[in-house]
């Protein structure tokens, strides 16, 4: 019989530390499936930042370097330069990439480092308990924006995928969501594409994933899915913002 779905080989069979209703586990599964499909698991090194993604090594049977907060793209730069034949991915959350690590992500992208970066945007600082992130939506209440984010005090939510797409060194920049099967399928293709960009020496690739955080949003898991659809996607539109088709830097 032809098997059409199975637990990914590149995902460890362990209990998740993610909260009920969190779609971060789906992101992990999609990355694992891509590693399987491209047959690169044994050649890949993952570099998580600090936040809910920090336990990357529990879930993937790959080598892992734990980077300081926000610095994963710099660590990935160093490693890829030293081992260009390896597949290197950084894995960051909103605080990690869009706040403390903006300098590192922008310059790694601008240099066109041949690495892949996965960015989980759930509009809050998850691990530290739901504080306001640079991606927090206007009006959204968090523990540090208790009256709702107001652009006059906290500025506007930052759109990383669009911003990075403006840089010459970026080969691929896309935003996907994880809240419906249709979106998950699309995310799956996007993640694979990002790895392929690296495998073909095309330069920097980034996939931003809109993810839920029902715990810190203080909504039920099913309500959280609606928040992604009705509140996040209108501000963070889905799509591919840049896709290089040839090695134009050659």
């Amino acid at each position: 019989m032809n098997r059409v779905f199975a637990y990914p080989k590149s995902l460890n069979r362990v209990q998740t530390h993610f909260c009920p209703g969190c779609t971060h586990g789906i992101a992990h599964r999609l990355v694992a499936e891509a590693l399987d499909e491209l047959n690169i698991t044994g050649n890949t090194i993952g570099i998580p930042g600090v936040g809910c993604c920090v336990f990357l090594y529990k879930y993937f049977p790959i080598d892992v370097l734990e980077a300081p907060h926000g610095r994963a793209p710099a660590c990935a730069t160093g490693m890829k330069r030293a081992r260009p034949e390896k597949i290197i991915f950084a894995y960051q959350g909103d605080g990690d990439m869009a706040a403390i690590g903006t300098s590192e992500i922008i310059h790694a992208a601008n240099r066109g480092e041949n690495i892949t970066v996965f960015f989980i945007n759930n509009s809050v600082y998850g691990m530290t308990g739901g504080q306001m992130a640079p991606t927090t939506l206007l009006g959204q209440q968090t523990t540090t924006s208790p009256y709702g984010r107001d652009f006059k005090n906290e500025g506007y939510p930052i759109r990383m995928a669009e911003m990075l797409a403006t840089l010459e060194g970026v080969a691929y920049s896309a935003r996907v969501a994880l809240h419906t099967p249709k979106h998950v399928n699309r995310a799956s293709r996007t993640i694979k594409k990002a790895f392929e960009m690296q495998m073909n020496d095309m330069g920097f690739s980034i996939v931003e994933m809109l993810s839920t955080c029902s715990t810190n949003w203080r909504v039920s898991p099913t309500e959280a899915l609606d928040v992604v659809e009705n509140e996040m996607i209108p501000y963070f539109p889905l799509g591919t913002f840049k896709e290089r088709t040839g090695k134009d830097f050659l």
Binding site: L65, R71, C75, T77, G78, M79, S103
Partner: peptide, 24 residues
């Protein structure tokens, strides 16, 4: 060898960390 002019000293040390972690 490879020389990378980093964007900051923060990036520099993390690049060293990444490269060294892979054994060079």
């Amino acid at each position: 060898g490879t020389f990378v002019p980093a964007e900051s000293e923060i990036a520099s040390i993390n690049m060293v960390m990444g490269a060294s972690a892979s054994g060079v």
